[in-house]
Structure formats: structure tokens, C-alpha cells
Design a protein around this nucleic acid. Structure first.
Lengths: 152, 152
DNA sequence: TCAATTAGCTGTATCGTACAGGTACTTATT
DNA sequence: AATAAGTACCTGTACGATACAGCTAATTGA
């Protein structure tokens, strides 16, 4: 590996760490004060249900890289708030199928559009090309992360 | 805003959310099992001390977007482990200046290089250009986040 | 000088998460 | 068919990271 590469990798590491830090702070600030709607895990669970349809707890846990018990509790909270429903899995007596309710999807969509607006605001002076490139490269980075996790 | 822009912003929102999720999982996996060296906040604090030199608790809290009490506790843990030292601020009797020790810097550097190696591994099939572009765009994204936070 | 501010610490609370263990159900093996 | 092994989910428990409120000591500005 060349020195330049080393430096670039170091920068990527730095920027990702920073992004995690600021992203967390931003989530806290927007989610708690303004809307008081959804915490982190609830949001990703609802997004996943929206993308991939109803599924059981284990599938959610596997896809989100979370412990089953974590998902169980998040799902319980979501159910209490009427954002998802549990139904027994007809094909497996042990399982429960989790489906987002209309209210849940609406809540999720509201958060998503608020965040999208926020990005639009922050990236107001970016060119369309740069935005598209960022989206594409982040997608590839995530894919690389997924592949790495799968490989063990 | 055009429809295409809207879609791109949505993708950026999605990818950042995913990155946070996977990044968290990765940190947990690498930090805890393999090395058992540094938790998240400790790492960013040491990095910050390395970059910006000794400084007091408030400065750290402001730069890292953390509550002062959080930094106080993190710093206490770091001190207990011999990774930083506290010295009274000569110019302000209320303050304490936090400095990284050699051991602290070494520990941080070890984590950083492990992570950098990890990125090198994951991004093995990326072109140098793509890596450099990702680093640059992430940097700009973080800058945009910082600016937004500053503006309120 | 003394009121207002600031720096840091401690008490307390919350959230997100993991791990260990339990129960109920399913699948595979004989 | 009987039973062992595995799986799905839940509950108990613990921990780490964080915030907020309130405290004390020191500083600064009117």
C-alpha cells in the first residue's frame, strides 16, 4: 500500500468517526426536542419493515445487526405505541410476524422527510453531481461493511 | 428542488443511517472482543487531544458535541487507566487541562491503525480515486454538519 | 465589591444494547 | 413414534454512554 493510500484510509477512518459522532448528536437534537417521535432503533425497524415487508423478530435482528432481545424490546415499545402489530406466524408456531401499522409508517415517513429536508438544507450549496457521488460512494461503503460482516 | 434531488437526498439519508448502524455494530465487535482497549468516547477524546493538544474539559465537550458531565466522566476513566493526566490550568483556577499521556496516544494509535487496516481491507477493490473522493466528500459532509450545529 | 458567569464535578435518570437463561415450538434422527 | 437438537422469542440483569439539574469554587464585569 502506498503512503498516499495510507493517508486516504486514515482520512476515511477519521471522517467516519466524526460522522458517527455528529450524526448521533444531530439525531438526539432533532429526534428529542422537535418531534419526540422515534428513537434510533424504532426508526430503523420501521424503515426496514417498510422496505422489506412484515417479518419476524429474528429476521429483523439479523438484518439490523442487533441482538434478538433488543429487537424484542423495541418491538414491544412500538406495539405499545400502535406503530406495529404482532401476529402469530402461521407457518411457524414459535414465530411472530411484525407488521408496520399505517400510523407507524406515517410516523417513520415524517421523520424521514424531516431528515431529508435537513440534508437538503445542509447540502444546499452542493452540486447535484457531488450529492449523487456521495450517495453512491456511501452505498458502496455500506455494501463493503455488510460484506465484511457476512464473511465471518 | 427537483425530483432527482429529492431522491438523492433520500439516498444520502438512508446511507448515513445505515452507516451509523453498521459502524456501531463494527465498533462493538472490534473494540470489545479483539482488543478490549478503548470505548467510543475515549477514542475520540484521545484523538482530539492528539490533534489539538492539551485542553480543558469544556473545550473538549464543545468540540465533541458532548455534555460537560459526560466528558468529565470519560476523562476520569481515562485518568484511572493512565491514558490522560489532569493538571490545574495555570491561567484559570477553575479549569483543569487534560493532556494525553504517551500510553494514551499509543493506545489510540493502535486502535486507529487497526481501523485503518480494516478500511483498507474492506475497500481493497476500490480505486484510489474513489477512496480519495469518498474521503473528500465525507469531509465536506461533516463540515456541513458542523456549520449547521454552529448556526444555532 | 458583589452579582453574574463559568468550569468542573456529582447525583440521578434514561436509552440502547448485550448476554444468559427459560419456555414453547419445530426439525431431524433413530 | 419418541426423543434429541435446534430455533424463536421473551425476561432478568447488567453496562456504557449520555443528558440534565444542582452544587461549589473561581473569575469577570459593572
Amino acid at each position: 500500500m502506498s503512503d498516499d493510500d495510507e493517508i486516504t484510509l486514515g482520512r476515511i477512518e477519521t471522517e467516519v468517526a466524526l460522522l458517527m459522532r455528529f450524526g448521533e448528536a444531530t439525531r438526539r437534537a432533532t429526534g428529542t426536542a422537535e418531534h419526540r417521535v422515534l428513537d434510533r432503533a424504532a426508526y430503523v425497524i420501521l424503515r426496514h419493515l417498510d422496505n422489506s415487508g412484515p417479518q419476524n423478530v429474528s429476521a429483523l435482528a439479523a438484518q439490523l445487526n442487533l441482538d434478538g432481545s433488543t429487537v424484542t424490546r423495541q418491538v414491544s415499545a412500538l406495539q405499545r405505541d400502535g406503530l406495529i402489530t404482532r401476529t402469530p406466524d402461521p407457518s411457524d408456531g414459535r414465530g411472530t410476524v411484525i407488521s408496520a401499522t399505517t400510523a407507524g409508517l406515517q410516523r417513520m415517513a415524517a421523520v424521514r422527510s424531516a431528515r431529508t429536508r435537513l440534508y437538503g438544507d445542509m447540502l444546499a450549496d452542493w452540486s447535484d453531481e457531488d450529492r449523487a457521488t456521495l450517495a453512491a460512494l456511501l452505498g458502496r461503503l455500506n455494501q463493503a461493511l455488510v460484506n465484511r460482516n457476512r464473511r465471518r
